[in-house]
Design a binder for these strands. Structure first.
Lengths: 333, 333
DNA sequence: GCAGGTCATCGAAGCGCTTCGACGCGAAGG
DNA sequence: CCTTCGCGTCGAAGCGCTTCGATGACCTGC
C-alpha cells in the first residue's frame, strides 16, 4: 500500500496538482465545484500531506519546540498542566510540539532552529541570567519565554504576575484583620538559582504588607516534612502573635498544615493559611487552602498565541503578565 | 544571512554534494582526507542539514511521537521522569520527540504517522481495551506501548512487572514476621478504567501473601487526606492485629503516615509500611518509606531502545517486564 | 601488459510539496 | 465588436537532501 500523494489526489479528482494544493491551503480562489471534488478525493483516498515535503517547499514545519526544565525542583503538576495546554493550543493552530529538555542547552535550540525542524520556540523556566537568551536574540525563529530574564529587551515574555500574587495574599490577610504575617517561600536553592519568580513574590508580599502597616517576614522553606515542621516552629517561637501565613511552595503546603496541627495551632482559628499553588493541591488539603492559583493553562495558552502571532509576522507586546486570582477556602478567616 | 545548504558545504570543500552527504551519513567509504575537508567546511559554515529535506529524501524524519496521558489521575512526577528519559534516550539515537496528548486519540496517531511527521510511536498508559490498539496494528510505523492491552499479540509492550512488585512487598513483610497485612491501592476510578497495572499489583500481592500463609486484604484508596484517614481507620478497626501495610498510591503514601500518627500507631514499631512509589517520594516522607520503586527512567529508556531496534528492522520481544527493586528504609521492621 | 576488481567520487534523478507566472474564458467596458 | 480584466486553473521550477548507477584511478595477479 504505497502512501497517497498529492498527485494521486489530483488524478483522482481530474485536476492539476497545484489546484489540489490551493484547495488545501486556500491561498487562491477555487470554484466551489472543483473544491468539493478535490475534498471528496482527499477523503476517498485518505490523503495526508507529507510533512517533510510541505516543510521543504513552504519553509514552514508547523512544529514548535517546547523546552521544559525537566529536572528536579520544579513543580511537576504545574509543568504538566502547562505542557498540556501548550500542546492543545498548538493543535488549534494546526501545529505540533517538539519536546526538548533544558539540558540540551543553547546548542539544542540552535540545532532544531537551524535544521528548520521547528518554526518557533517556547522556553519555560527562564532564569535571570540565562545563557540561552543571547542565542534567542540572534535566532531568525521567533520565541516566547515563560519567565523573565534580567534584560527582557527584544524578547517576548509571559508570566504570572508573581508580585501581584504575593501582594494579593498580604491584602487578603490584612483585610481579615491580621497584624503579624509571614511568607514561607521556595527552597533556598530556587532563590540561589535566580529564577526570579520566588523573589518577586516575596517582594510583592513584603511591599503590600508594609503598605498595610503589618509586621511581615519572608523566608525560604525546604520541602521535607521535618524541615517544614522546624521552620514553622521557629517562626512561631520567634513571633508568637503571628496569625497569618502565606506558603509559596506546593510541596510544603500540606506539610505546613500538618506541622501547625502538631504544634497545637488550629487552622483557621489560630492561624490563617494562604497558599500560592495550583487549585488541585489547595482543594485536596484539609482544611482546604485559601489559595492564589498559578494559572498554568492560561500561561501555556497565552504563550502559544503569542508565538503564533509572531509566526504570522504580527507585533506582540514584549511582556505579558497574567493576573493572579485568589480563591477563598477554609484555611483563612 | 541565507541558511547554509549542503551545496554550500560542497562548494566550500571542493567536492560534490553527494560526497558531503556520504561523509555525513557514513553510508559509503570516503577517504580520510576528503572526510576531514568536508567536516571542516561543515564546521566553518555552521551547516545543519534541513530536516524537512532530509525526511523527504530519506523517508526518515528522525522523530518519534511520545503520547502521554495528560489528564488527571496519573502520577505526574513519574510521568515527567519517564518523559525526560525518553527524550534523553532518543537524543542518544539522534532522534527528537514529538509530544502528543492522548486526547488526540487514534486520529492523532494516524495523522502524524500518515504525514510522516514521525517514524515511530511510543504510547504511555495503554488501557486494557484501548481503541488505539487496532490502529497501531495496521500502521506501517512501528510502535512501543507502555502497559499492556488485553491482547498484546503483535505489539511491543514494556512495563514494570507490577505483579512482582506486589509480591515483593508481601514477601518483605512476611520475611519480617508479619502475619496480617493489607494493601491500599490506587483510587477506585483507576480500577474502573481498567489500566491493568493496579489489578496486577493487587493480584501479585494477594497471591504472594497466600503463599506465605498470611491474612491479606487489598482495596482501592482515594487520595485526599480525609479519605485516606477514613480508609486506614476502617482497616484498623476491622483488623486490629494488622501490622503490615502496603501503599500503592503515591499521593496517598504521605497521608497514610499522617493518618497512622493521628490514630496512635507508630511506624514502624506498630505498623510496618511499604510503598510502591518513586524514590523521591519515599525518601521525603518521615519516616522514610521502605519502597518498591517504579523505574520510570528504565521504562523510558527501554521503550526507546525497543523502538529504535524496530526502526532498524530488528526483531524485538513482544513483551518486556522490568524487574522491580525493593529499597529498605525506616518504615518497616 | 592487460583483464578484472576495489575504492573514492561524481552527476543526476527523484522525494512530495508550494508557488509563480501564464493562459483560457466569460463578463464588463468603450 | 474588440479590448480589458479578473477568475479559475494549469505547468513547471524549485525547496535541500539521499541514493543509485557510472566513472576514473589505481591495484592485483597471471
Amino acid at each position: 500500500m504505497r502512501t497517497v500523494t498529492i498527485a494521486d489526489v489530483a488524478k483522482h479528482a481530474g485536476v492539476a496538482v497545484s489546484t489540489v494544493s490551493y484547495v488545501l491551503s486556500g491561498k487562491r480562489a477555487i470554484s466551489a465545484t472543483t473544491r468539493q471534488r478535490v475534498l471528496d478525493s482527499v477523503r476517498a483516498l485518505g490523503y495526508h500531506p507529507n510533512a517533510g515535503a510541505r516543510a521543504l517547499a513552504s519553509k514552514r514545519a508547523k512544529v514548535i519546540a517546547l523546552v521544559l526544565p525537566l529536572r528536579a525542583g520544579m513543580n511537576l503538576p504545574v509543568l504538566m498542566q502547562f505542557a498540556t495546554s501548550v500542546v492543545t493550543t498548538a493543535r488549534q493552530y494546526d501545529h505540533d510540539v517538539l519536546l526538548m529538555t533544558a539540558d540540551e542547552g543553547a546548542d539544542g535550540l540552535h540545532r532544531v532552529a537551524a535544521s528548520a525542524l521547528v518554526d518557533g520556540l517556547l522556553l519555560m523556566d527562564v532564569e535571570i541570567h540565562d545563557p540561552r537568551v543571547p542565542l534567542l536574540r540572534k535566532l531568525a525563529e521567533p520565541s516566547v519565554l515563560i519567565g523573565f530574564p534580567a534584560d527582557p529587551e527584544g524578547l517576548t515574555c509571559v508570566d504570572l504576575d508573581f508580585a501581584r500574587a504575593g501582594a494579593l495574599c498580604a491584602d487578603h490577610l490584612a483585610d481579615l484583620g491580621h497584624r503579624e504575617i509571614a511568607l514561607l517561600g521556595a527552597p533556598r536553592v530556587v532563590y540561589e538559582r535566580g529564577t526570579g519568580f520566588a523573589e518577586r513574590t516575596m517582594a510583592g508580599f513584603v511591599e503590600a504588607a508594609r503598605r498595610h502597616g503589618l509586621e511581615a517576614d519572608a523566608r525560604p522553606c525546604e520541602e521535607s516534612f521535618d524541615e517544614v515542621h522546624a521552620a514553622v516552629k521557629l517562626l512561631l517561637d520567634e513571633r508568637p502573635r503571628l496569625s497569618g501565613l502565606v506558603v509559596h511552595n506546593e510541596a510544603a503546603a500540606g506539610h505546613v498544615l500538618g506541622a501547625l496541627r502538631i504544634l497545637g495551632r488550629r487552622v483557621p482559628e489560630d492561624v490563617s493559611v494562604v497558599a500560592i499553588c495550583p487549585d488541585d493541591i489547595a482543594e485536596r488539603a484539609s482544611p482546604a487552602l485559601t489559595s492564589v492559583l498559578i494559572p498554568a493553562e492560561d500561561v501555556g495558552r497565552q504563550a502559544v498565541r503569542l508565538l503564533m502571532a509572531k509566526l504570522e509576522g504580527q507585533a506582540v507586546p514584549d511582556s505579558t503578565l497574567l493576573e493572579p486570582r485568589l480563591t477563598i477556602r477554609e484555611s483563612s478567616r
